[in-house]
Amino acid sequence: MMNFWAEHFRRSHPEDPSLSLQETSERCRSDDTVHAKLVVENVSKVFVTKRGNTEALVGISLVVQPAEFVCLVGRSGSGKSTLLNLIAGLEKPGQGRVLADGKPVTGPGADRMMMFQEPALFPWLDVIGNVLFGLKLKSGLTRTERREVAEFYLRSVGLEKFVHSNIHELSGGMKQRVALARALAPNPKVLLMDEPFAALDALTREQFYDDIQRIWREYKKTIVLVTHNVREAACLGERVLVFSKHPGRIAHEFIVGLQRPRDINSVAVANYATVITRALKGALDPELRGKPLGADEVAALTA
């Protein structure tokens, strides 16, 4: 399984600069926007509808370094999906700008794969056809290689028995798993995931926490993940950003410096989750707004 990953990765990213980068234990967390993978600069987004305007995002700034794992949490309607859409290039910011690899985002690109909140699978294709869709748009893979890659990812989401099923025959969680396989298969550098695990059962989900951490570490993917599950955020993210509601702003920022791989059920993760939940409720000292909160602050707050 591991070998397959390595092989597949080498094939689909022949000269990947990040592979030759030295792994530094001290990850670059500065606001170094020159080498940043994603830069969101003072972005605002207003949706104009007949019933009035909705300020989805106001003055959001965010820098994501290469191979960083950022989790976004926030109440429903706080603009998390909107931010992901902006990064994906599916929406245009009203103000400010979004950069990917230093270049302004003008539209979607296959280097930034989006996994939507709803599965968005194509009903005219079977399960493997859906996973193959993105792979077919990638050059440099033969037919058999594409099939192997698709089958590999379907196996890794536990759907090897449903390779040729129709989409309408799957349960909600199974659909979400196909969507996950479809997003992972083309091996994008940036994964934008909108509540990818919401429809999974608890056991599969824990398996996924391990898998996604492994994928992220081994292949140095840059991941921005939206979730409603604060434990999940603390378990997966290097950084957890807490959105405030109406209009959407980043209220708090947590630096989760725990050892990998992390276990969702560990006490350390639970401590972070407790403080993040308080941040979500708006119960943290306003003084702490905008300050990166690390292990020391979390320890002090849980004490």
Partner: peptide, 8 residues
């Protein structure tokens, strides 16, 4: 949207 993010 899904197709566009996959590069279509």
């Amino acid at each position: 949207r899904a197709a566009r993010t996959m590069g279509s």
